[in-house]
Amino acid sequence: MASSSYITDILRRPPERTFLGRLKAGDEISYLTTLACAASILLIVGLIVAELWTKSQPTVQTFGWKFLSTSTWNPNSDQYGALPFIYGTCVTSAVALIISIPLGVGAAIFLAEMAPPRLSNMLTFLIELLAAVPSVIYGLLGIFILVPLIREYLVPALRNTFGYLPIFEGPFYGVSMLSAGLVLAVMVVPFIVSVSREVLLAVPTDQREAALALGATKWETTWDIVLPNASTGILGSVFLALARALGETMAVTMVIGNTPKIAASLFAPGYSIAAVIANEFAEANGKLYISSLIFLGLVLFGLTIVINAVARILILMTTRKAA
């Protein structure tokens, strides 16, 4: 041991403080600082999960899994069930996707397959600006512009054509799951367009040329050759839009009606997970009440993470295949 300690002593001796040595030390500082910042992101995400988890424990222990499957939400009697919010979130997101998928994919087809590159870039720029509009502004327009339009034109039209369906029954008060779904549809279209266009552009040109050379029309080429090639990526863009729709707060809160009831009709007011947190968190008193809202946040967090991950994998699969 004694003999080796001499050598390790030399190795451990700090480098001489020459000019170069000091610079080397600066190098270490830069490395360690940036490393610390990168690592702190792990810490922040860890902290988020830990906070949500610990603060929602009272609800988990009191209600367990039943929290997610019961539909009573009554702060006065301290009874909490999340089903109406989960239902409202799913219904509004579904309405949004049903409208935005054809619209978004249609626009992406035009932008990727037909429009000349300069026009396509300009239009994509404009459509992507829609994603930059703050959600509270969508809510503002939703309340004062879209809801009156829905009441005036869309609701009578739906009643006249599909009035026999239970989803278009009952009175329409303006704020409703239908209104929320429509606002959401407008909000997620840019994500579908932007990603689907990228994915379509990544399909190799020789695929198109081969189809056209065999006598297919432009549309047949697009529909039968290009779209199947890009379908995984387009599905990815849909999942991306779904994650957005599920987590969207302000616009939905402003037009959904904020009523914790499960109604079959889209004309009826509802509530979403994000909306109930936004609406009731600041005034919530009582440990179980706050804990239930935070647990809803945790559910939303988990849901969006899974869906975002699926979206990323799907998009990567197509763009990698093309590359």
């Binding site: 992101i41 922040i44 995400v45 988020i48 949500l52 994650a243 599920l246 987590g247 969207e248 707060t249 994000a274 947190i277 936004a278 946040g297 939303l300 967090f301 969006t304 993470i305 975002n308």
Partner: peptide, 8 residues
């Protein structure tokens, strides 16, 4: 982190 809903 980028995918976490803003309300959370």
């Amino acid at each position: 982190l980028n995918g976490v809903p803003s309300i959370v």
